[in-house]
Simulated assay, not measured.
Amino acid sequence: MLKATHLTLFLVFTFLFVNLASAQVKDTVLKPLDTTRAIPQKAVKIDSSSRRQDTAKVKYINPGKIAGRKAIFKSLIIPGWGQLYNNQLLRDKLNARGEKTGHFWQKTYTLGKVGLIYGGFTLLTISYIDNRNSYKIFLKEAQVRAFNRLETDPTKKQPVNPDLVRYGDTNVTEAQAIFKRNTQIVIFSYFAVYAVQVIDAYVAARLNFFNIDDSVALKVTPSLMSNPNSMYGFNTMPALKVSLRF
Results as ranks from 00 to 15, higher is better:
Pro159Asp: 05
Gln184His: 14
Asn182Cys: 12
Pro162Trp: 00
Thr152Gln: 09
Val160Gly: 05
Arg145Tyr: 00
Val160Lys: 03
Gln184Val: 09
Gln184Asp: 15
Lys157Glu: 04
Gln158Ala: 02
Gln158Asp: 04
Phe147Leu: 02
Ala146Val: 04
Val160Cys: 03
Thr173Cys: 01
Arg149Glu: 11
Thr152Leu: 06
Thr152Asp: 10
Val193His: 12
Ala175Arg: 05
Ile178Cys: 05
Tyr190Ile: 03
Ser189Val: 09
Lys157Tyr: 06
Gln158Trp: 07
Ala177Tyr: 01
Val172Cys: 06
Thr152Cys: 04
Ala146Trp: 01
Ala192Met: 12
Val165Ile: 15
Ile178Leu: 12
Ala177His: 03
Ile178Val: 11
Pro154Glu: 12
Val193Glu: 15
Asn182Ser: 11
Tyr167Lys: 02
Arg149Asn: 07
Ala192Asp: 08
Asn148Tyr: 00
Asp153Phe: 14
Phe179Cys: 13
Asp153Arg: 04
Asn161Phe: 01
Arg149Val: 14
Val193Cys: 15
Phe188His: 09
Ala177Met: 05
Arg181Gln: 09
Phe179Ala: 07
Gln176Ala: 12
Asp169Trp: 02
Ala175Lys: 06
Glu151Met: 07
Asp163Lys: 01
Ala146Asn: 14
Phe179Thr: 13
Asn148Trp: 01
Val193Asp: 15
Asn171Tyr: 08
Pro154Tyr: 09
Thr183Lys: 09
Val160Pro: 05
Asp163Thr: 03
Thr183Ile: 09
Arg181Ser: 12
Asp169Val: 01
Phe191Glu: 12
Leu150Asp: 15
Phe191Cys: 12
Ala146Lys: 10
Phe191Ala: 13
Arg145Trp: 00
Val193Ala: 15
Lys156Tyr: 14
Ile185Phe: 06
Thr170Trp: 12
Tyr190Ser: 10
Gln158His: 03
Ala192His: 05
Asn182Val: 09
Lys157Ile: 07
Gln176Ser: 12
Tyr194Phe: 11
Phe179Val: 13
Val193Leu: 15
Thr183Val: 12
Pro162Ala: 01
Thr170Tyr: 11
Phe147Gln: 00
Arg166Thr: 02
Glu174Cys: 03
Thr155Tyr: 15
Ala146Ile: 02
Ser189Asp: 13
Val160Glu: 09
Phe188Cys: 08
Gln158Gly: 00
Tyr194Pro: 03
Ala175Met: 10
Val160Gln: 06
Asn148Met: 03
Ile185Glu: 05
